[in-house]
Design a protein around this nucleic acid. Structure first.
Length: 815
DNA sequence: AGCACGCCGACT
DNA sequence: GTCGGCGTGCTC
């Protein structure tokens, strides 16, 4: 007797045991999709996690209804990977399954049934429900589970279906059950017999009275004879509006032409020429050798290359090598909008062997990529973090570009995991290699490299020996004292921009705060406008003329008078990027000043338009939030100014300084990429702050040493492991009590100095939920597992309290 | 997660 | 009297 552990797409602990019926016994394999009944009436697509023959003791296992695949759809490496994720990040396998699979591949009760062809039905042996179902199927051929509910009691549905399947009267229609449909494209051609048998001049004579038809016919025949292997798209004929579909139809009616359909990949692939990559510089060659040596020892690499040092060149070399060995490459990016440059280069080289995968694809497009990966049709996949779950057949290399980027571990989507770390583990299961690349590696990765867990490869110079930009600190306090300021800018900063403009070069101004003013306050009574869903002050957006909550998105109109005391003295405080943009536009009225932030880039193609404007040098100054630190590789940006640099440092987060360093360095990389005369102006009240001083010195080793010392001093990662537990509920006192209680359980098992909190979250209420946090600082190394198990035990104990079941609980490992 | 069951308040 | 709110318990 065989049993299967099944992963269901539910956020429930562990797997579920099902009995494998005899007739499926020889077919079933781990990693296949199966249909299983669950609860009263639901049917889910589950994944076979494990097969065994241990009958469960305290419940009766239900039977697997059917198997959906002929071969495992999830490779064993992926099953291992899921299992690791679930153990390491303390999340459920079901959550991972949901995240990993496009929804068309995990059907729920939409599953269709049909009569088995040639089934001889003996009606006298059927019960009422079975009879109903058979009759319904005779009328309708296909029927889905939701429809069956109309005539069979919910609880009887599964029983009925199972017994009819046992009797071999009905079956699950897999073709219909698969929601995915391939896209077909219409193509046209001149009919074969026309080309073979008929006299062309005669046909053309016939067509003389229909000028357009004749032209169209000639047009098609010309294309076809020019290149007989090329398919002519129907839509292509009508593109310029000269021909209409009626012309084509007339020709078709005369039996001269015909249309035919071909399945088309939903994702357009590159069909242009294929190009060789350029040669490496000396520094790159050295780096490449170091990478090779590390790979030789099966060691992964941290490629630390200063901005525009040409990390991409090294990626390309390694990609090519990997593909030549017959293996596949996964190229991860923090967000898909950054693909532009890398894609262009890879497309030229690899053409149709290149694929893309990210959350913006439609479900069908995802399935298509899924299949192409499964069939090994894609050699290189450029993708975001969710592509870690595709069914790779022989993965050889994973590149994690911009590995420091926080988009690799978004907090909002569950399951919570860091794609950079997960990539290293996934690669391990495939015996593949990993390159983590960044100009500003995360402190954690740098530490791993120092501990020789990763091979550290440093590219210290820009490609073509272009000089790195120069940093200058402007003491804003001094400037203010000597009255050398205009608004938020010192006169020195304004002068530098002027100089850059005079030389016909471009300037970037970074100010990492959205909106116009962060607070609108009544001067008379002190009233400020709060979000009604969150404990957060609304930000004033002048461009949209409204107040916005940056956390839940709520919007309100801007009050003209104080809603409380009706005073008209409303004061704007806290400078946002819109205000910086406004000021700069006023200082340089003759110049083109543009703004780049999520609010101004929301419109379709807004980003592309601005990108082109900057490229064509129509834009003189770009003012923007952190968005401008990515992807803007232009030749004529010479100056980067950061007028309020302090605002980046004083954020309550142990990574704030690291982030500030990364952001400043990334944006500085936009300056002087060609000329080597780039200049970065950092305006601050604290020019003596270590971070600014270290950035100015531009000594990478010292900066990371500083970060590591700070982290060690305050017991933060990478010297400890953090787990953050967040509890949320509508009722403040309820979460408060619950978190106190969880805190006391944790203190029972763990030493006091491991536990911080419970504390109210920085944002006490978000989306109408009050939130409390407990931060655990656990030792790294072999004790970590032991401690984590105690955390798990505590959480289990907490879950036993039924009164707290309604509390939303989230656990962030490696927070 | 999703669903059923059961217990309370506010409606025809 | 019943409809529907959500607290509780259960799913192989």
């Amino acid at each position: 007797m065989q049993y299967a552990q099944i992963i269901l797409p539910l956020n429930l602990k562990g797997t579920f045991t099902y009995k494998v019926p005899e007739e499926l016994d020889s077919k079933i394999q781990e990693g296949m999709r199966v249909l299983v009944p669950f609860g009263g009436k639901k049917i889910y697509t589950g994944i076979v996690f494990e097969l065994h023959d241990l009958a469960p003791e305290d419940f009766i296992a239900k039977e697997v209804i059917s198997i959906l695949d002929d071969y495992p759809i999830v490779p064993s490496q992926q099953i291992n990977f899921w299992n690791w994720l679930s153990n390491y990040y303390l999340c459920n396998l079901g959550e991972i399954y949901r995240f990993a699979f496009p929804s068309s591949l995990k059907l729920e009760s939409e599953t269709y049934l049909k009569l088995k062809p040639n089934a001889v039905i003996e009606f006298e042996n059927l019960d009422v429900n079975e009879m109903y179902l058979i009759q319904a199927l005779e009328v309708r051929q296909l029927i889905n589970l939701t429809d069956i509910e109309a005539f069979i009691p919910k609880k009887e549905i599964i029983k009925t279906i199972n017994s009819l399947i046992d009797l071999q009267y009905i079956e699950i229609d897999e073709k219909v059950a698969e929601k995915y449909k391939a896209k077909e494209v219409a193509y046209v051609k001149v009919k074969d017999e026309v080309l073979v048998n008929q006299n062309l001049t005669e046909i053309l004579l016939q067509l003389n009275r229909a000028k357009k038809q004749k032209e169209l016919f000639l047009n098609i025949i010309e294309k076809q004879t020019e290149n007989p292997d090329l398919h002519i798209r129907k839509s292509e004929l009508f593109e310029d509006g000269y021909f209409g579909s009626s012309h084509f139809k007339a020709l078709a009616d005369k039996n001269l032409v015909e249309e035919y359909y071909l399945q088309k990949d939903r994702i357009e692939s590159y069909e242009g020429e294929i190009e060789e990559i350029e040669e490496l510089s000396e520094a790159q060659k050295e780096a490449r050798i170091e990478v090779d040596e590390a790979f030789e020892e099966k060691k992964n690499v941290l490629l630390h290359g200063v901005t525009s040092s040409g990390k991409t060149h090294i990626y390309l070399e390694k990609i090519e090598e990997c593909i030549n060995e017959g293996k596949n490459v996964l190229f991860l990016l923090p967000e898909i909008s950054l693909t532009k440059q890398i894609t262009q280069r890879l497309e030229k080289k690899y053409g149709r062997q290149l694929g893309f995968y990210h959350q913006k694809l439609t479900d069908f497009e995802k399935v298509e990529v899924w299949r192409r990966i499964k069939n090994n049709d894609i050699k290189i996949l450029i993708a975001t973090r969710n592509a870690l779950f595709l069914p790779y057949q022989n993965l050889g290399l994973i590149i994690v570009d911009e590995e420091h980027d926080s988009a690799y571990r978004p907090r909002e989507v569950s399951p919570f995991f860091n794609a950079k770390d997960a990539a290293l583990v996934l690669a391990g299961f495939y015996d593949a290699r990993v390159i983590l690349g960044s100009a500003t590696p995360s402190v954690e990765s740098y530490y791993l490299a120092r501990k020789e867990k990763l091979q550290y490869v440093f590219l210290n110079e820009r490609f073509g020996s272009v000089k790195l930009p120069e940093f200058e600190l402007i003491n804003f306090k001094e400037a203010q004292d000597s009255k050398k300021v205009s608004g938020n800018f010192s006169l020195q900063l304004i002068d530098e921009i002027k100089k850059t403009l005079d030389e016909k070069n471009q300037t970037i101004i970074l100010h990492n705060r959205r909106g116009y003013a962060s607070v609108i306050e009544c001067e008379t009574c002190g009233y400020v406008n709060y979000c009604s869903n969150c404990d957060v002050v609304l930000t004033y957006h002048k461009a949209a003329n409204e107040m916005k909550c940056h956390y839940c998105g709520q919007r309100a109109s801007k009050p003209k008078t104080c809603p409380k005391c009706h005073s008209e003295n409303l004061n704007e405080r806290g400078v946002g990027v819109e205000q910086i943009h406004e000021e700069i536009s006023k200082i340089f009225p003759e110049n083109e000043v543009d703004r780049m932030d999520v609010d101004s880039m929301r419109k379709k193609f807004a980003y592309e338009k601005l990108y082109e404007k900057i490229e064509d040098r129509e834009t003189d100054i770009v003012v923007g939030t952190q968005m401008i630190s990515k992807g803007l590789d232009f030749d004529h940006i010479e100056l980067v100014a950061i007028p309020k640099a302090d605002s980046m440092l004083y954020v309550q987060d142990f990574r704030a300084e690291e982030r500030a360093y990364q952001l400043i360095t990334q944006v500085s990389g936009r300056a002087g990429r060609v000329s080597g005369n780039g200049k970065i102006l950092i305006q601050t009240y604290n020019p003596d702050h270590s971070v600014f001083q270290l950035i100015k010195m531009n000594n990478v080793t010292k900066i990371y040493k500083y970060f590591l010392t700070e982290r060690q001093k305050f017991h933060y990662p990478p010297f400890t492991k953090l787990i953050m537990i967040e509890l949320k509920h509508i009722k403040d006192d309820k979460v408060n009590r619950a978190s106190q209680f969880l805190g006391s359980i944790l203190r029972k098992y763990l030493p006091e100095d491991c536990i911080l909190g419970p504390e109210r979250a920085q944002i006490a209420r978000l989306n109408n939920l009050y939130q409390f946090q407990i931060l655990l600082k656990l030792p790294r190394g072999k004790n970590y597992e032991k401690f984590k198990n105690l955390v798990l035990l505590s959480l289990k104990e907490f879950d036993e309290i039924t009164a707290y079941q309604s509390i939303k609980k989230e656990v962030f490992v490696d927070f």
